[in-house]
Design a protein around this nucleic acid. Sequence first.
DNA 1: ATGGCTATATGTTATAGA
Length: 259
Amino acid sequence: MKIATFNINGIKARIEALPAWLAEAAPDVVVLQEIKSVDEGFPREIFEDLGYNVETHGQKGFNGVAILSKLPLEDVTRGLPGDDTDEQARWIEATVVGKRALRICGLYLPNGNPAPGPKYDYKLAWMQRMQARARALLATEEPVVMLGDYNVIPQAEDAAKPEAWVTDALFLPETRAAFRRIMALGFTDAVRVRMPQAGVYTFWDYQAGAWERNNGIRIDHVLLSPQAADLLCDVGIDKAERGREKPSDHVPVWVELDS
DNA sequence: ATGGCTATATGTTATAGA
């Protein structure tokens, strides 16, 4: 089963590029971030016509996540537990049953800039809630895949110019420590284990010729629970998408699981 | 690069992203 994550930076803006990538890459499941749309505004028919079941968790203007799946999506839940006052649409879960039942978590972790400040406080609090949710999911001992835009540069080799990020919410020591705490629960960073070399990126800014200069960062991650890591066959980053017509600033990242 | 671009809605300007 091929499972992908793609921060599309606006469904309206990616109405041509996303179906084109789906037809070519043919993921069985894809989690989307930054759909920037309310549920009623999401063009679900386009994806249903391509053979996908569609579940969205949107909001007006920004954020918003979704899951598309060729297999039925079961037990869908929306929102990250732990704060009933949180109105930002950044988390969606569903179970997909192939050879095995997989719990899929699609996430859009807060950016957190500027740091310090209330947005950074929100990011760290969100990561703490995510850690609690991750721990609960691990306790099920079922295969769990948590994938999406983490807005975390885990290590210096995950940035072309790490020195440019030292005061940024994506790379601050406190951010990376919070990410390590989640990893330390027992997750595997699928891209890290299969593509351990430096210079593997998933995002290139629209500004300052970042793509042309390969000034990228790796912030879109696929974390696997131990039971999911045992199923890992392959990983990939569809880097060519960044060079196409009207691209997102992120590219798709995928794993192939024997599931 | 102290924000150089892109996207959306709040819409000829502001907010957010990373």
